[in-house]
Design a protein around this nucleic acid. Structure first.
Lengths: 142, 142
DNA sequence: ATAAAATAGTTACCCTAGGTAACTATATCA
DNA sequence: TGATATAGTTACCTAGGGTAACTATTTTAT
């Protein structure tokens, strides 16, 4: 399996560029989309939750959240723990989510349509296993 | 398959960070490693070849090549086409390649050891198919 | 109960890596 | 041979992330 990572990583740039292009229509980038996606799928969330999820540091999420707030796509809410700021989608945020979701899904379909259901399932499953392995190893090191 | 890209892309940052960490011992980063890897596997090459391979612009490769030259891992050679600069590994470059290759392979093995041979084969194969699809679509757009 | 340690978030500053535009030198095409 | 294309470089800019130091608040331990 030599060169496996090369293979895996080579897709990254073209993919992220295509997604950024796709999202630019809404003044979004993929890194901002991740935040929207997260709170859409996990409900109102704190910044630290999101940072952990995407393996980035807190200041990066602060910046992303500020950008999204300026776009009026999310809003901050007070939490019972007053250190925390819970963020949630605004109605506009929900709208934009839906539009982007549609575009991304159709792009995903276009990229996947030549694969069989089995290939997709297996690929997805193996990716999950690698991810799990990765996080467990990483965890041990810390 | 909604959220497929999320899944795929989420692995990127931890993976690239781990590889950069691994390579830092030799004052390398993954982006520099790509260049070394390319000329090791394709022989002496021009900058444009490498840029195309990794979907980056020429100035990025100029920078990478300069960095590698300062590390004495590659050297420039005149080409028959005097616009081109053909770069190749120095003996030191070959050495460093071998050391890094060993480290990366062992890391790869650690990440993959819990997968069956079949899972690996399928994953690899599907990844290739997605990549091909991607490049053919991208090509059409231009 | 309270002092010490931990946690959430922010700010300021820096780094990596890439992109674009404009340029030089050389090669190819018409 | 003049026009066009290509390889590479340079200067400048941008995106996005990291670290350290800080404030505010909460939790833990004595």
């Amino acid at each position: 399996m030599e060169g496996f990572f090369q293979h895996y990583l080579r897709l990254y740039r073209p993919l992220i560029n295509a997604l950024n292009e796709l999202l630019s229509e809404y003044n979004l980038s993929y890194s901002l989309w991740q935040v929207i996606y997260y709170i859409k799928h996990n409900g109102p969330s704190t910044l630290v939750e999101i940072a952990k999820r995407y393996s980035v540091e807190k200041p990066s999420i602060t910046r992303r959240v500020n950008a999204l707030e300026e776009l009026r796509l999310i809003e901050k809410r007070e939490s019972r723990d007053r250190r925390e700021k819970v963020i949630q989608l605004t109605p506009l945020g929900e709208e934009i989510y839906a539009s982007c979701r549609k575009k991304i899904s159709s792009f995903e379909r276009k990229m996947m349509e030549h694969l069989t259901e089995d290939e997709l399932q297996n690929f997805f499953h193996t990716l999950s296993k690698i991810q799990q392995q990765f996080y467990s190893k990483e965890g041990k090191q810390q």
